[in-house]
């Protein structure tokens, strides 16, 4: 899982995609996940890192994370993965 080039989230939770010219707003949790993705973390590492810090069960988090990553794909913010 890799973010497209030149994509970064500001401290305010504002994400500008220079490829498409689109802008997005992210809440704190979403900002953290995007940061972890940009650091090259795997899904499992992201899950562990969030569960260490926040009060959330892994099954629920898995659901939210799947949904969120699907949205990142939908918004074309992630590199296409070769299966």
């Amino acid at each position: 899982m890799k973010l497209k080039k030149n994509i970064a989230v500001s401290e305010n939770g504002f994400l500008f995609d220079p490829h498409s010219g689109e802008s997005y707003s992210l809440n704190k949790t979403a900002q953290l996940i995007v940061k972890l993705i940009s650091e090259g973390k795997t899904e499992v590492e992201i899950m562990n890192s969030i569960m260490k810090k926040y009060d959330v069960e892994s099954s629920a988090l898995q659901r939210y994370l799947d949904d969120f990553i699907m949205m990142l794909h939908q918004m074309n913010l992630l590199e296409k993965e070769d299966n």
Binding site: G13, F16, S23
Partner: peptide, 11 residues
Amino acid sequence: NIDEFEQLSIF
């Protein structure tokens, strides 16, 4: 600049 747009959109 995009930062003005960001300022307005987020805050």
